[in-house]
């Protein structure tokens, strides 16, 4: 057990309650995922959509699971969505992560997509975790963690549930 108040720096850097640190600092992208991270750097959310049947898939995958076609196009999404399910992590994954708990993370269904197949899993920030509910409306906020990577998180927005596609 390390005490974060001692001289030993926390390997995860500066930590805040409610925020899981960006432990991955580079997306290790290939040509199928680079456009996602390029858009992320601009604060935009894009996703691959099957040109044959219109099914979105996140993360990018070589085949459309609905029609098995391979061709895709990148489509910009509004970057809003609805919490499909979530958990409040109250016990840290490792002692060094103790300052982060409790934090909420959940599965987000994105507006403009069909939902399942294009869900994103995000840390839910800027919120009192005790108030988070399934169905809450959220928007993506990007944390710039390096020259190559921006981590998507979500935070609550106003507006009625289900206002998306």
């Amino acid at each position: 057990m390390t005490d974060s108040s001692t001289a030993t720096p926390n390997p995860f850097g500066e930590l805040r309650q409610g925020v899981f640190p960006s432990i991955l600092k580079d997306p290790h992208a290939d040509e199928t995922t680079q456009p996602f991270w390029d858009a992320a750097a601009d604060g935009r959310l894009v996703a691959t959509r099957c040109t044959n049947c219109g099914t979105f898939r996140i993360p990018p995958a070589p085949y459309c699971y609905a029609c098995q076609h391979t061709d895709t196009e990148w489509v910009e999404l509004p970057g809003t969505g609805t919490i499909y399910t979530f958990t409040i992590v109250r016990h840290p994954l490792a002692p060094d992560l103790a300052p982060t708990v409790p934090y909420a993370s959940g599965v987000i269904e994105l507006d403009g997509t069909q939902g399942a197949g294009a869900r994103m899993i995000c840390n839910i920030v800027d919120v009192d975790v005790e108030t988070v509910q399934i169905g809450d409306r959220v928007e993506i906020v990007w944390e710039r963690v390096s020259d190559t990577m921006s981590t998507p998180r979500v935070r609550p927005i106003g507006g009625p549930p289900g206002a998306g596609a």
């Binding site: 899981f20 580079d26 290790h28 992208a29 995922t33 399910t85």
Partner: peptide, 29 residues
């Protein structure tokens, strides 16, 4: 590190207990 790892590594959900809590929460809902 494969290109898909970046889509999950920073979200704070990394253990089986996290996964099954998500299923459970949805079942409760």
């Amino acid at each position: 590190i494969g290109p898909s790892v970046a889509f999950t590594a920073n979200n704070g959900l990394l253990s089986p207990g996290h996964s099954f809590s998500l299923l459970t929460k949805r079942h409760m809902h």
